[in-house]
Design a binder for these strands. Structure first.
Length: 495
RNA sequence: GGGGCUAUCGUCUAGGGGUUAGGACACCGCCCUUUCACGGCGGCAACACGGGUUCAAAUCCCGUUAGCCCUACCA
């Protein structure tokens, strides 16, 4: 029986939740959901200097907002709690239980060794190689016999732990290469001779094991958490052969690897601050729906195929979560990096806003509204939402409703639209006492007829008088949203 | 320096020996219209470069160039 699919997203809590990380998490999530598997959130906090609890919370909140729910992992805002049977899910809480025993085993079995080279010593040796223009490899090439692999240097010094990398004739090597069969990149061969004995565990106190490194922890954690598919950014491709070596030495079967390309900024450089928003919370503030983020991010580097065919119309581009899950396939992921396109995100957002019901939109729109929003009736909210549902973002929707909350003090193009000819019509509008759509429309038409005006003439005059500018939602909605009393009082100034 | 990855419109991409190189976003134009939008229709626009292989190359092979990743006791 094949094992249940298990994927994981393993960010390090050293700052905000990056949009690139969210995309990787999204792929993991999609894959797990598609195969009825489990999705794990694991916090890689072995960088003691930069990892904080606040940052862990930012990750949890960001993931939750994005709708990427995890089946195993930390419980939001509860540092000591987790869900799942293979926890803890914060690496620093796994030291004693998971890492230490493996390190000891590796040393005892002669698969890894204590390295007592000092940082300064290493720097000198590295420089010697650099100066000759040859790559520095610990205990290899230029550096052969200088390392601690076969010697035991001063035992009173603190030590790090290094892995003995393959010598070249291990059975799991092919032609001296460590082979990675990547689900998105294809087969990649890494000559084992180009790798050296890397550090598994940082230098600790004398006689003490220090904090293990990322490359060590991932292997241990992915194994003990039963991760079957490691889906991560392709910046890890070059780390993979080191990890594979550790899996082999430990006698573990490596998981399936899928390295997904990175997301670049508009100019093709790594997505960073200067390209605008990189943190997920910034996108939230921009008025984007989480579903838009999911779709836009998924569609970068991924081309869904229906019966072997790519999407062929704008209509098909707008996929629901259910469709994405159904269609998701690692084999349809691009090998090359994609540039992030805000225009496309906005377009997707607009489409998704259009397709939502007003009830679906309301909770997302609410944070962008003043407190007065909550005092309004359901019917009023419904009209407000549907009247502005053509907007590109929630912010845009909120902006087009600002006239509801305060009377204008400036009037744009008043001379042009509020003319003596429309004035009598304005007076008639002010006299109306029912702004329900049907009656209002009927009354409006009668006024137009009576005053010999076109819809445009009256509508624009009203917009300027009521909203201060010739732009607003449909004129009947505008009047309804304002209400009879408020509209009348705003009109008074012009009569 | 070494090892690795990548390369089709401005962007996301389809296509993987013979196509008018297809779609989407953006942009431009027209139409619709009570404003702004929405919507509809149309247009502009691409195979990085050089060699091979082949009757035929965007597609296969080899180089070159460019970008990126690893080469950390960061992740």
């Amino acid at each position: 029986m094949p094992r249940q699919v298990v994927t994981r997203f393993a960010p390090s809590p050293t700052g905000m939740l990056h949009i690139g990380g969210v995309r990787t998490a999204l792929f993991c999530w999609l894959y797990a959901r598609k195969h009825g598997g489990r999705f794990i959130l694991r916090v890689e906090d072995t960088d003691l200097d930069r990892s904080t609890d606040d940052n862990i919370r930012i990750i949890e909140d960001g993931m939750a907002w994005c709708g990427l729910d995890w089946d195993e992992g930390p419980v939001a805002s509860e540092p000591l709690k987790w869900v799942g049977s293979n926890g803890p899910y914060r690496q620093m809480q796994r030291m004693e239980s998971n890492y230490k025993p493996v390190v000891e085993k590796l040393i005892n079995e002669g698969l890894a060794y204590r390295c007592r080279c000092t940082k300064e010593d290493l720097e000198v040796r590295r420089k010697i190689a650099d100066d000759k223009g040859i790559p520095f490899q610990y205990n290899r090439g230029q550096d052969a016999d200088k390392g601690c692999r076969d010697k035991n240097h001063d035992a009173s010094r603190p030590f790090s732990v290094r892995l003995k990398m393959p010598s070249g004739n291990e059975p799991w090597l092919e032609n001296g290469c460590i082979v990675l069969n990547d689900r998105v990149k294809g087969r990649i061969d890494f000559p084992a001779a180009t790798l050296d004995d890397w550090v598994l565990v940082r230098t600790g106190d004398v006689d003490q094991i220090g904090v293990p490194t990322y490359n060590f922890c991932v292997v241990i954690d992915d194994t003990s958490m039963e991760v079957t598919h490691v889906i991560r950014g392709d910046d890890h491709v070059s780390n993979t052969p080191k990890q594979i070596a550790l899996y082999r030495v430990l006698g573990f079967e490596p998981p399936v690897f899928a390295h997904v390309p990175m997301i670049l900024g508009k100019d093709g450089a790594k997505l960073s601050k200067r390209h605008g928003a990189t943190s997920i919370t910034e996108y939230q503030a921009l008025g984007l729906l989480p579903s838009s983020i999911r779709l836009a991010l998924a569609r970068l580097s991924w081309t869904p195929k229906v019966d072997g065919r790519a999407l062929e119309s704008a209509e098909e581009e707008i996929l629901t979560d259910a469709q994405m899950i159904e269609l998701f396939d690692l084999g349809d992921i691009q090998k090359s990096p994609a540039r992030f396109d805000m225009d496309k995100l906005n377009w997707i957002n607009q489409k998704l806003i259009q397709r939502s019901t007003w009830q679906e939109l309301e909770p997302h729109l609410r944070p962008f509204m003043p407190d007065a929003w909550d005092t309004k009736s359901e019917e009023w909210k419904k009209v407000a939402v549907t009247a502005t549902q053509k907007g590109k973002s929630l912010v845009e929707m909120a902006n087009s409703l600002t006239f509801c909350w305060s009377a204008p003090t400036e009037f744009e193009s008043a001379d042009k639209f509020i003319t003596p000819t429309v004035n009598p019509a304005l007076r008639e509008i002010a006299a109306l006492s029912n702004y329900e759509h049907g009656p209002l429309r009927a009354a409006f038409d009668e006024i137009l007829e009576r005053q010999g005006l076109k819809t445009k003439d009256l509508a624009q005059a009203l917009r300027v008088a009521l909203c201060g500018k010739p732009i607003s939602p449909g004129i009947f909605d505008t009047l309804y949203l304002l209400g009879v009393e408020e509209a009348r009082s705003r009109l008074k100034k012009w009569l």
